[in-house]
Simulated assay, not measured.
Amino acid sequence: LPVFATPQSLSDWLKPRMSADVIGTWGVKPGTKSVHNLWLEIAEGETSLADSTPPVRTVEVVIVRIIRSDGKVLIESHQELSNGSIRDRCRPLSEKMKPGESVEDAIFRALREELGGSLVDGNVRIMPDSYVRKVEERLSASYPGLPACYLLHSVDAEVEGLPDEDFCTEEGEEYGGFMDGSSLANSAVSCKKHYWRWVHSDSL
């Protein structure tokens, strides 16, 4: 797999393999992420790129369908990004896995990071026999023009203590390993707020 020392080296590698016009929209078009984001994902081991034309981005993701007693499911309706744009989501809580991380560890990290530790610690029950693994191939919404292969690990869960109404949570530092004041992390588009709502499961 290709290794990139800097975001610029990644950008230089992408250009002959993709349309430069398309790459130019990354981090500029509302709801998209930048080359810096992709470089950070690769550097942190969350994403790999296949050396093809166009390259294929492979990501392993956990999805947690939080279901409450009346059968409604919690979805993330949208995100507020650091550049002020809004990114529509309309999907259950999900998070990219880190290298060497078990599915269970990734689930609990995702719940803590996205919903806040005080909300979820000790209040989570993973539904027995709800685990499903599947592979999806589609274009990435974050990086237009870049095909993606998603390895999805999905579970259903009950989480006590969540608000009954729509609510929002604030994201911690998304690129923790790189937040030393460096321009690399500061150039990346990060999620500042998550907006959550309860929906009927048949509307998903």
Rank of each mutant, 00 (worst) to 15 (best):
G145E: 10
T53Q: 13
E101I: 11
G71L: 04
D166E: 15
P92Q: 15
T53I: 10
S118C: 07
I63V: 15
D88C: 08
T169L: 03
I86M: 12
A148Y: 05
S142K: 02
V61E: 10
V3S: 14
Y150H: 12
E101W: 00
L81W: 02
V35M: 02
Y143I: 06
K96D: 14
R197E: 15
L10Y: 00
P30E: 12
S142V: 03
V189E: 02
R87D: 11
G172C: 04
K33N: 14
R138G: 09
Y150C: 00
S11F: 04
S52E: 15
F4K: 00
S182M: 04
G116K: 07
R87T: 08
P144N: 13
C90W: 11
G176E: 08
C191N: 03
S187I: 03
L119Q: 12
V35E: 08
D88Y: 13
S69A: 15
E76K: 02
E136K: 09
V73D: 12
W13M: 03
P54T: 14
R68H: 11
F4R: 01
P7F: 06
C168R: 06
E76A: 10
R68K: 10
D164Q: 14
R57F: 06
L151S: 11
A141V: 09
S182D: 15
Q8M: 04
A148Q: 14
P7G: 11
E173M: 03
D88L: 15
L111G: 05
L184M: 09
D70T: 08
V35A: 07
A141W: 05
S154M: 13
I67W: 08
C149D: 07
G31V: 12
S11E: 14
Y143D: 06
V64F: 13
D70N: 13
L74W: 10
S11H: 10
S77I: 00
I126W: 00
V120T: 13
S19E: 13
L93C: 12
V62S: 07
A106T: 09
K96P: 08
G172M: 03
S94L: 12
S187G: 15
I23C: 02
R57S: 15
E160H: 07
P92V: 13
D12I: 11
I107K: 00
L74E: 12
D121W: 06
H200F: 01
L152F: 07
M179I: 05
A20H: 05
V61A: 06
H200Q: 08
Y150Q: 07
E160M: 08
M127F: 11
K96C: 11
P128N: 09
G122M: 09
L14T: 08
S142G: 12
L151I: 11
V35H: 03
D70H: 04
G176H: 03
A106F: 05
